[in-house]
Every structure is written in C-alpha cells, then in structure tokens.
C-alpha cells in the first residue's frame, strides 16, 4: 500500500503512524470532524447509557438494591435466564450445523439458504411475535393439537422461548459462515486422510479453528436473547411474576411510574451490554485473525 512501509518492512517502526501532510486535512477540519463524530456518539450513545445508571441511583443505593428484593423482579430475571439458556444452545447447534453444511459442501440453492437464515434480521420483532400468535393463538392453526398434546405455548414460557429463538436465530451462523468459508476444507481433508472420523475431525480440527468466532457469536446471541423486547412482548401476555422477562418487567415498572425500579432492572441489562461490548472488543483486538474477515477492523 505505502512504499515507505514496504521499504522499511523489517524495521521496528510504522511510518504510517506519522501524519502525512500531503493527504491529510487541515488541522481545523480534522478537529471539527473529530468533534462532530464524538459529539454525535456522546449524544446518542454515552448519554443514554449514563442516564440509565444515574436514574437508577437517583434515590440512593438503598432504593436501588431494594428494587431487586421484589419477587416479581426476581421472577423476571429468572425467566430471562431460562429463555436465553434454551435459545442460545439451540441456535449454537443450529449455527454449527448450518455453517458446516454451507461451507464444507457445494450444493444448489446455497445462496438462497444463506438469505433465508438472515431473514429474521429483517423481520420486525413485533411481526416475529405475531407469527407465533397466528400459530398458537386462540384461532391459531397449530393450537388445537398443541393444546391437547403439549400444553399452552402462547402466554407462557414456551412461547417466550420460541420468540427468542426466532429473533436470535441467525447470530451464530452468521459469525461462523464467513470464517469457515475463508478457512476452506484443507485442514479437515488432511485430518480425514490421517484416519480421523468425521466427529473427531470436527472436534479436534474445526472447533479449535473457530472457537473465538463461536464465542463471539454466542456473546451477541446471548445479548439479544436477554434483551429482546418486541417479539417477546407480543407472545408473553404480560402475566406478572410468570411471563415477564426483564425487558417486559422494565416496561411495566416504567408505566407504573416506579422509575427507580425500572432503571435498576435496566441497569442490570446495561451492565450485561457493557460486559458484552468489553469481551467483544477484547476478542476483536486479541483474536482479530481468528474472527471472520468481515469482523476485522
């Protein structure tokens, strides 16, 4: 790219770090642009995040922690964890299996399959909830059979889990497919030629190659699973202490003007988001080479 760098390829410095006046903007323009960018980010990202914690602690630490003594709050936390604990592993298995089929084999309609996997991303969460209401609702076409044989789906945990699975469906597959496409099949073929079984090849060769991307996908999938609001809202029925996840509970508390409690529960989710971002940044920084090219920056 830059010949100066190339010329000095084996020297312990990076000339590109130097500002090159030739292709740089005037100092004033640079500062204005940086100010505009950071101003925009602060206004739209940092301030909202900060306000969550400020609002939660508005009445002091006592009121903050009291919010978590409420059994309904605890029930919502529990339900959120249950939903994520079911949805994430299922999507993990799906992601691995889809990525394996798509990247290790050639077949017709592959591009269509990839597009279909991405579909839930482009569907409004409310519509995602709606489709399960149409299936399992009072007039739903699957409800008669399910009602008789399995039990209630809508307005109970199974519905919430289903909706969560739907909205987090593509996360892991999407992380793995580009990476595994990039890695090709040579490693696996070598393992097979050395006598490894298919399963051994997968666990001993493929899995180590994709573990960080997998973790990355699980992380994003989990963040969305615990935070999903729209889809879950439609199928939950909002039964307090029973079918409210944390985001739904936040809504109820907020609408009842229990602001400190609402923001206290919100602060938990905000902390989860910050941990997610921290681990994500760490993975991008430390294992950039082991994440898919689309993630490298």
């Amino acid at each position: 790219m830059n010949h100066t760098v190339k010329d000095a390829a084996f020297l312990p410095f990076e000339p590109l770090k130097q500002t090159n006046s030739v292709i740089n903007e005037p100092r004033l323009v640079r500062w204005l642009l940086i100010a505009a960018a950071l101003g925009f980010l602060s206004l739209f990202l940092l301030l909202p995040l900060l306000s969550v914690f400020v609002e939660a602690l508005r009445k002091g630490a006592g009121a903050y922690f009291a919010a978590f003594g409420d059994p309904e709050t605890l029930a919502s936390i529990k339900l959120t964890f249950i939903a994520a604990a079911i949805a994430v592993p299922l999507n993990l298995v799906f992601g691995l299996s889809a990525a394996w089929a798509i990247t290790k084999f050639e077949f017709r309609g592959k591009q269509l399959l990839i597009t279909c996997i991405d579909l839930p991303f482009s569907v409004s969460p409310v519509v995602a909830g709606l489709i399960f209401v149409l299936i399992f609702g009072a007039q739903g076409w699957a409800q008669p059979w399910f009602g008789d044989h399995i039990g209630k789906v809508l307005f109970s945990t199974p519905g919430i889990v289903l909706a969560t699975i739907f909205v987090t469906f593509p996360f892991i597959a999407r992380e793995l497919i580009p990476l595994m496409q990039e890695q090709g099949t040579e490693d696996e073929q070598a393992a097979l030629s050395l006598g490894a079984t298919g399963w051994q090849t997968f666990t001993k060769v493929t899995l180590p190659n994709i573990k960080w991307a997998l973790l990355y996908g699980v992380l994003l999938c989990n963040a969305r699973a615990m935070g999903e609001f729209g889809a879950v809202s439609v199928v939950s029925g909002h039964i307090r202490g029973l079918t409210n996840t944390m985001p739904l509970h936040i809504e109820i508390l907020y609408n009842e003007y229990q602001f400190v409690s609402a923001f206290a529960v919100a602060s938990l989710l905000a902390l989860l988001a910050m941990v997610t971002l921290a681990v994500k940044s760490f993975l991008e920084w430390r294992y950039a080479d082991q994440l898919a090219a689309t993630r490298r920056h």
Binding site: H3, T4, K6, D7, N20, S21, V22
Partner: peptide, 18 residues
C-alpha cells in the same frame, strides 16, 4: 535493497514526503 531509502527519495522529490 529494501530500506535503502530509494523510494523515500523518489517520494521526497515528488513532495509526497515532507
């Protein structure tokens, strides 16, 4: 060879390197 400064000199003549 690499790092001999030949490209830097060329770029200096062009005004690409202050």
């Amino acid at each position: 060879p690499s790092g001999s400064g030949k490209t830097t000199l060329l770029r200096a003549i062009a005004g690409l390197e202050p």
